[in-house]
Amino acid sequence: MKEAQIICVGCPLGCRATLKVSREGEVLEVTGCRCKEGRRYVVEEFRNPVRVLTATVLTEGSRVPLLPVRTSSPIPKEKLREAMKALAKVRAKPPLRAGEVVLEDLLGTGVDLVATRDLPS
């Protein structure tokens, strides 16, 4: 058995939870959370931490140098840096509307990279 520490981000309290985890990775016990939702969050955060990535990509043929982008849904936390490397190769070409896909299936996650604002030419 091992222990994991996770801080709940659900509210200003910021409970510091301790998870007892079996060798197979199963969560056996959660202590330190002061609410039910928090317990759910820390278990999920332990099993599969995910984040929405927001960044910019370079443009080509536009008067603005950058296009802000986001992932259409959260991706695994450990892929953030690798995702940035993939973004560095992207060149966004106008015209693009906010919400349009800039890069499909980022790193095989099934998640798309989308523009968060219109790109003028």
């Binding site: 801080i7 709940c8 981000v9 200003p12 910021g14 984040r51 936390k77 953030l80």
Partner: peptide
Amino acid sequence: GLIRNEVQCLHD
């Protein structure tokens, strides 16, 4: 700032 930012911007 917010705890969310402490965790997701610094700890991460």
